[in-house]
Simulated scan of single mutants.
Amino acid sequence: MTATLAASAPRRVNPWLIGWVVALGFVALLQAYGRDDLAWAFKFPRDWVIPLRFWLSDLMKWLLNEFDLGLFTFRQFTRSIAWVIEQPYWLVKSLLSTGFLQGQGSGAVVLFPRISWVAIIGIVMLMGVYAKDRKLALLVGGCFFYLVLFGQWDSAMVTLSSIIIAVPFGVAGGLSLGILAYRSPGFERLIRPLLDLMQTVPVFAYLVPILILFGFGPVSAMIATIIYALPPMARVTILALRQVPAELTEFGAMAGCSRSQILWKIQIPAAKATL
């Protein structure tokens, strides 16, 4: 009896199917009768377009040409940041690539030569031994010797100079953001979409405004690299600090440590393996 009632019960129609049928019917009617009366549905009116690109262009012009911070302009502020970053870059580049020069162009005089490529390969091999073992040292040394063999040493040293300067800034910035986000859940919720955006947007997308703000040169490339390196470092810092056992933090608090002492003497060392 129960089986007979179940078999004779009306079959329930899937609401998603009804929705698709209605949507397709609406599209068919719109295509058939709405091209003349509803022209805006086929070609988006130009007056409705939000002129965001023009607003951003005007904002950049205003920042560079009119925005005054009192003692200095915004252009002077960004150029001073570029100058500060450029000084250690110039020092490292002189050591690795060009040497310390007096003058410019073909008439420049070498005051102090650059470090020999043999010495640099020896240094990186020693770093490989210190970091892991001899196999890593041989691998790193072979990679650097490859650059010498194929004539890419000079350009590689210029790139290495940028990396040597950009990486510490990226690590310090990402570590700071990660610590702040770990301590403040509200701050983490605030920067999480920004970190997602920074990781998904191609680096060349924000390289253009960086070039406008900081000028053309290696500093702009380093700033773009720093911005691109911040999100993963911040996320790794948050994850590493959360994996620190709560017992260690409680032990530090019981021992009378301050928040900064707990962070730098307990949590950061305990999270070093993940960092």
Rank of each mutant, 00 (worst) to 15 (best):
T2R: 09
T2K: 09
A3I: 04
A3V: 08
S8F: 04
A9H: 04
R11F: 01
R12C: 02
V13F: 05
V13N: 03
N14C: 03
L17C: 06
G19Q: 13
G19N: 11
G19M: 10
V22P: 08
V27M: 09
A28N: 10
Q31C: 06
D36G: 11
A39G: 01
W40D: 02
F44R: 11
P45I: 01
W48P: 00
I50E: 07
I50M: 13
P51M: 09
R53H: 05
S57N: 10
D58F: 02
M60W: 11
M60P: 01
M60K: 09
M60G: 05
F67W: 14
L69Y: 03
L69T: 08
L71D: 09
L71Q: 10
T73G: 15
T78C: 13
R79W: 07
A82T: 07
A82F: 00
W83D: 02
V84D: 06
I85N: 09
I85D: 05
Q87H: 08
P88E: 10
L91G: 00
L91V: 11
V92Q: 09
V92A: 12
V92R: 14
G99K: 06
G103Q: 08
Q104F: 03
G105W: 00
G107W: 08
G107A: 12
A108E: 05
A108Y: 14
V109D: 05
F112V: 03
R114S: 15
A119W: 13
I123K: 12
I123H: 05
V124L: 14
M125F: 09
M127R: 02
Y130M: 11
K132R: 12
K132L: 10
R134W: 13
K135D: 08
L136A: 04
L139A: 11
L139S: 05
L139F: 10
V140Q: 05
F144W: 14
F145R: 01
L147D: 01
V148C: 07
D154S: 04
D154C: 03
V158Q: 15
T159A: 03
L160V: 03
F169L: 10
F169A: 01
F169M: 02
G174L: 04
S176W: 15
S176E: 01
G178Y: 06
I179N: 06
L180Q: 04
R183L: 10
R183P: 00
S184N: 14
S184V: 12
E188L: 15
E188I: 08
E188Q: 13
R189I: 05
R189L: 11
L190F: 15
R192T: 12
Q199D: 14
F204R: 08
A205E: 07
A205Y: 13
Y206D: 05
Y206C: 06
Y206L: 05
P209A: 12
I210N: 06
I210R: 03
I210E: 12
I210C: 12
I210H: 04
I212Y: 08
G217I: 00
G217Y: 00
S220A: 15
S220G: 12
M222S: 03
I223S: 04
I223G: 07
T225W: 10
P231L: 13
M233E: 02
A234T: 12
R235N: 05
R235K: 14
A240D: 03
A240F: 08
Q243A: 06
V244K: 02
V244T: 02
A246D: 07
L248P: 02
L248Y: 15
E250D: 11
F251T: 14
A253S: 06
A253L: 09
A255Y: 02
R259F: 07
S260P: 00
Q261F: 00
W264A: 06
I266M: 08
P269M: 03
T274S: 09
